[in-house]
Amino acid sequence: MKAKLISTLFAGLLLVTPFVAVNAGDDDKHHGDDGALKKAVAEATAAKKKAASVGGEWRDIGKFLKKAKKAAKKGKMKKAMKLAKKAKWQAEAGYKQVMAQKTVELPSYLK
């Protein structure tokens, strides 16, 4: 189930970055991965900063990024990529969450 989930995610990745996916299947430690992962981590880090700038960062984003870097060091590129994407998604969601409630009125039960 987990494997299937990862492969599904990975298939999604394949659509976005064909170059990475082709290589990743054969060799997890291929240099092509390294570039794509660095890009993903950089994107996630930027998204995290953007979320933090409006006070909307979620709790585990930093942890995901740390884990992604650790996994990459061990050559587990698929895992690293998955974590970096998750970090980016959460950072963007946290930013959207803040933007959606720029002004908060008293809830109806207080009126």
Binding site: G56, W58, R59, Q90, Q101, V104, E105, P107
Partner: peptide
Amino acid sequence: KQFYFARRGQLNFSCA
């Protein structure tokens, strides 16, 4: 006040 009533985090709760 904004902080108190704004939802935050993955679980989307406000303090209120």
